[in-house]
């Protein structure tokens, strides 16, 4: 079954899968930061709130009075035991969605988050199909029908090694000449 590759090597599959796995794991983990203390939690929230009177700056960065009051409010709400979501909602109701440093992951704004992810998936699929079509096309064009038995046969391997040896010698000759 030529699912991943033209040659049906196990190593190929392993490495290709490892790459996929790492990328996906990274995607899944990127949001799951471990937050320990209340203060670190508060700082993480600060970084998600934009100061309404100083465009482009979060309340974490801003030095104005309003940002300070908001920071204070965040810490008070954390002390009261409110969740991150409740705190962010509190500010959204007051100042509108634009107070959030990133669009909320709900309703229409899912569009903001899922479009790039959709493009990623489409891109990966297209590349996959593209490479596969090219590899298959090539083999069809050249009418190569080499059986796997032949590929792994002693005779084939020996001739392959002979070719490699010749090219290697040729190349080292060139290098020597240059020097």
């Amino acid at each position: 079954m030529h699912f991943f590759l033209v040659s049906n090597s196990l190593y190929h599959k392993i490495i290709f899968l490892a790459f996929c796995f790492v990328s996906l794991a990274a995607l899944a983990c990127s949001t799951s930061q471990v937050i320990q203390t209340d203060e670190q939690r508060a700082q993480a929230i600060d970084k998600n709130l934009i100061c309404p009177i100083c465009p482009g700056e979060t309340i974490d960065q801003s030095q104005v009075e309003l940002a300070k009051q908001m920071k204070y409010a965040v810490r008070e709400m954390i002390d009261k035991g409110q969740s991150d979501e409740e705190i962010l909602n509190f500010f959204t109701e007051r100042y509108g969605v634009s107070v959030l440093a990133a669009p909320p992951k709900e309703g229409f704004h899912l569009f903001a988050w899922w479009t790039p992810i959709g493009i990623v998936l489409v891109g990966i699929t297209l590349t996959f199909i593209f490479i596969r079509s090219k590899t298959i096309l090539k083999f069809n064009n050249q009418q190569i029908h080499i059986s796997k038995d032949f590929m792994s046969s002693q005779e084939f391997q020996e001739s392959l090694e002979a070719i490699e040896k010749t090219t290697h010698e040729f190349n080292s000759d060139i290098t020597k000449e240059k020097e």
Binding site: I50, V97, P103
Partner: peptide, 10 residues
């Protein structure tokens, strides 16, 4: 008609 910010977290 909704104003949003797209910042660092995004």
């Amino acid at each position: 008609g909704v104003v949003v910010t797209v910042g660092q977290p995004y």
